[in-house]
Structures are given as structure tokens and as C-alpha cells.
Amino acid sequence: MDFAGALSPDHLTFLLEGFWVTVKVAFISIILSFLIGGIVGILRYASIPVVSQVLAVLVETIRNLPLLLIIFFTYFALPEIGIKLDIMYAAIAALTLFESAMLSEIIRSGLKSIEKGQIEAARSSGLTYVQTLNHIILPQALKRMVPPIVSQFISLLKDTSLAVIIALPDLMHNAQIVYAQKDAYIIPIIFTVALMYFIVNYCLSLIARRLEIKQA
């Protein structure tokens, strides 16, 4: 093992550049998937005729497809129908599509976990459906959604590494380039990459715990 050579200033800078790409792709995907997943989850919960059924089919289809296949589709298949995306945007689109489906189910399940008695009481007191959703259902459901949502965000951050198959210059891509230079670099580089992922994911876990405490 050659820690000194593997973690030279040039190599560390190269790894950090890849790590920045990983964080950027994950952050944008998290924001977009949370917004889209939230809208889809609420629409499915509302049981709007036809719309709810169509969304259910789409969500279940996407959830049961490998993320790797979706990444291939966004980068290699979309250009065949005239939609050509940059590597980074293809990765973001694939991650957003996949994670939106996952989050929509978490949000729908969280909303459905609220007792019907509370909803009926709110409606009988004169609140509209939207007011009941905003003031009664969502505040309580969010408390129950925080742990699985953060867990899904952690999975998303780790899943960015799959985009290495389309040569996204992320942390794993740059790590492979570095440790391919010398066998003695493999363990030091893998250890460093694992540490970087751990730090970010652990911070997300701490944020989740803080949110749970505040909402308790």
C-alpha cells in the first residue's frame, strides 16, 4: 500500500473535483425528486380519477426497474428520439426519475398513515380538503416521513456512483483513474472514497435525528 503516493496533492485535488460533481448531482437530484415525488405522492393520495391510476402505473413501473437501466436509457436511448443530454444532466434526469418514484410512495404512505378520524373531524368542523391536507394531514405525516426520506436521500448519494458507466466524472470515476495507475493505490484510494461518502451520509443522518427531535 502506498498512501503517500495515492494521496498526493494532485490526486487529492482530482478526487475532490470528482466528489464535488457527486455532491452537485446528488443535491440537484434531491431537490427535483423531492418536488416531483411530493406532487406525485399527493396526487396519488388524493385519488383523482384516471390521474391517480396513471401515476400509480408509472410509479410502480419505474420502482421495479434497475436504476442502471434508467441511466442507460437517459444517456443512450433518448438521443434516438431527438433528446440528447449532457452526461451530468443525463445522470440527474435518471436519478430524479428513479428517486421521484421512490419518494412519491414514501409520501403517499405517510399521508395514508394519518387516522381517518382526524380527517373526518377536520372536514366536519368546516375545513376544506386542501385546508385539512395543509393543517392536519401534512404536519403529522411529515414527522413520520423524515426518517425514510433521509434514508432515500442517502441512497441517492450512493447511487450517483452508478453513473460511472456513462463516464460521469464523479468521485468513483476519478478514483478509478487514480488507482488504475498503480496497484498499491487501490486500498488507500478506496478507503479515502469510502470516508468521503461516510462523512456526507453521516451528516445527513445527524440532520434527520435533529429534525425528529424537534418534531417530537
Rank of each mutant, 00 (worst) to 15 (best):
V178F: 00
V23K: 10
P79S: 07
M196H: 07
L157P: 04
Q140L: 06
Y89A: 01
T74K: 08
I83H: 04
E115A: 14
K84M: 06
I92W: 07
G37F: 09
I114H: 10
V193H: 08
V50T: 10
M88E: 08
A167R: 01
A26S: 15
I62N: 05
L32A: 15
I48E: 03
A90W: 13
N134T: 06
R44G: 03
G37D: 07
A77F: 10
A101Y: 00
K112S: 05
M145Y: 13
G37P: 02
T132C: 06
P79T: 10
I165N: 11
A216D: 09
V51H: 01
I189S: 12
Y89Q: 09
I136V: 15
V150I: 15
S161Q: 09
A4H: 05
A121T: 01
T22K: 07
G126P: 01
H11M: 08
R144P: 00
D159V: 08
N201I: 04
T96G: 12
I213G: 04
I71A: 13
T192I: 03
P49A: 05
Y197M: 07
R63I: 12
V57F: 11
P169K: 14
E105G: 01
T160M: 09
F72N: 14
T22I: 06
I149N: 11
I62P: 08
R144M: 03
E80T: 15
L204V: 09
L55R: 00
S125N: 06
D2N: 15
L211C: 12
T160C: 09
I199A: 10
P188M: 13
F72S: 12
M145C: 05
Y89D: 08
F34Y: 11
L58R: 03
S52P: 02
R210K: 06
S8D: 04
V178L: 03
I83L: 14
G18W: 09
L58E: 03
A216L: 07
Q118D: 03
F198S: 10
Q152V: 03
L97S: 05
D2F: 01
Y45V: 02
G18C: 11
A122S: 15
S155C: 08
Y75V: 06
I71Q: 15
I199Q: 06
N174P: 11
V200H: 02
V193A: 05
T132I: 07
I107V: 13
S29R: 13
P169W: 12
T192G: 05
I70K: 14
Y89K: 02
M196Y: 13
T74P: 02
M145H: 09
R123M: 07
A208W: 00
L142Q: 10
A122I: 02
Q118K: 05
A180M: 05
Y75F: 15
I166L: 07
A194L: 04
W20N: 10
V200L: 15
L69H: 08
I189D: 13
Q140W: 00
N64V: 07
Y197D: 11
L156H: 14
I177Y: 12
G110K: 07
G37W: 12
I107T: 06
I87S: 04
D159T: 12
D86W: 02
Y202S: 14
V51N: 06
I137C: 02
S155M: 14
I30S: 11
E212W: 10
S113F: 02
Y185F: 14
G110H: 01
V164M: 10
L35V: 15
F191K: 07
I71V: 15
T96S: 14
